[in-house]
Amino acid sequence: MFDLMTAAPGTERDPLWWLPLAPTDHPLVRPGAEVAPGDALLELRFPVDRSFSTVEAVVGGWVRSVDSRGICVQTEGLGVPGSIAFGESVRGRLMVAVPDRFSELRASSIDISVAGTIIVAGARVGLEALTRARTLGARGMICGGISGRELSRLTASDARQRAALRGPAPFALVSLDGYGGRPISSLAWRRLRAAADDEVALGTDPPMVILKCRAAEPAPSATRTPGARRLVRVTSGPYVGREGRVLDLRGTVGSGGMGLHPAALVALAAAGHGRPHERRVMALADLERLD
């Protein structure tokens, strides 16, 4: 039955990164070319004042294809997949701004030190924190989840700024797990903590955090026998983001008073220092297996 649960998204070696092209964009690279972070990939031409600027690669790798759909780069790195993205792909120094994966970043804790960084903002980020970070020069943010309403407001605000001839500085947001408040999974959290102060990239197409590969790092999901430890993560409900171990199957649990969903008894790890361990019967549909 453990195999009948969805697997949590893992990490991906050398993921693809797309840079879309507008009708007036002029690519500066050819398929097969090697690119390094900071290399110019395309030229943006402004028809009004006939000026131009370039868009740089946010990650190293080699160019797989160049056509009117965009530039596709096979990156050299480790991709942590996300669910939702906003903005343009960026790179910057990774700054973990919250003490643990359950925390939420407050606007008041953002200061000038965020300039040029990509901030790990915890389980959720609000519009105030996003605006403040962007104003102070942050390049991007990574969070577990974001409210759809705040994302709409951010999009509208961005569109207003882009109505000017020169738009705002590039900024990206990647929500790793979806909408609402969603603690970052421990797997992604460990990767992000390990990459703190490194230069990382946020890709928006597809949504992804691209980290540098470390030579000593084992390949993803090759470290243990799949399913051996029955580790799971809660994906919805009051225990969302908590992780634990499946102890046993427990028939079905009800929703709307009906026993519709197969369930398991799960030993949940503590949600933070000093918090208790708990045992709960939970629907398998609300769990993701981690190993």
Partner: peptide, 25 residues
């Protein structure tokens, strides 16, 4: 309710999740 709106959006991304009473509604 922004929270309910997000849960509707989540239904599109991960329709099998959220087995609570509210999720069923």
């Amino acid at each position: 309710d922004p929270d309910l709106q997000d849960r509707i959006r989540e239904l599109a991304l991960h329709p099998w999740r959220d087995t609570s009473d509210i999720g069923t509604r």
